[in-house]
Amino acid sequence: MTSSKTVFTMSGGRVNLDRRPVLRGIDLSVEPGEAVAVLGANGSGKSTLIRALLGLIPLSGGETLLYDRPPARFREWWRIGYVPQRLSVGGGVPTTIREIVASGRIARQRRLRPTSAADREATGRALAAVGLAHRASDPVQALSGGQQQRVLIARALAGEPDTFVMDEPTAGVDSESQKLLAETLSVLVEQGKTVLLVAHELGPLEPLITRAVVLRDGYVCHDGPPPHAVGTHALPGHDHVHPHAEEEPVSPLDWRPIS
């Protein structure tokens, strides 16, 4: 089920946003089965890198391949499970948690084909994996920020992809749920799945991470074993600002909803 194809190959990747260079020449490749953490300060370009790797924003220089194909010609999107960095889920209309999570199956579904038993089972497993099965028919707008983040994770899990791309999946998520996510992800990594995630604090995820890529000012300034002993705080470029705490610094234990 895992192929020998390299999952992500970026060479000399450059991205400008509003004519300002955000990525200034990134070389990065991720092999199947790796569990890579992208680290770096706020604004160092982590989300931009992840979007560029998926072809969601165009490169202004260099090239990037997704399973050996340029993203525009990539067709096997069911292999990718993307968890975007979001402050809130939903929109103008109420929607249940189950509806959102079930929509993670979309890349595996065909037009006019009704939802299958396999779809429903995968949705149920994904809901259980983030500990929200008992609230499946509640509107997602009624959840706290951290719970909404778990819904987004469950949506990616429901698609049963080969590669998980998660932008700060643990931001605003309490330590109990972080442990649950770490357990789920380590089972998936054992099965040979690939994980590429952005994090500020690895926390319970640390044991399963096989490699850390640290960004600074649009360059990769460290690519290698995760900084177990030193911790992310000692990394260059880490500015000790929690991603979504606006007024006062918040300790990782003192959890509160984002947004």
Binding site: L54, W77, Y82, G91, T95, I100, S103, R111, V165
Partner: peptide, 23 residues
Amino acid sequence: LVVFGRELYVLSQDEEVARASGL
């Protein structure tokens, strides 16, 4: 709506996720 409803739902929830699902 019958043919594309599921896809339109994903799109209207999150355009980026829709793109990363190959829609």
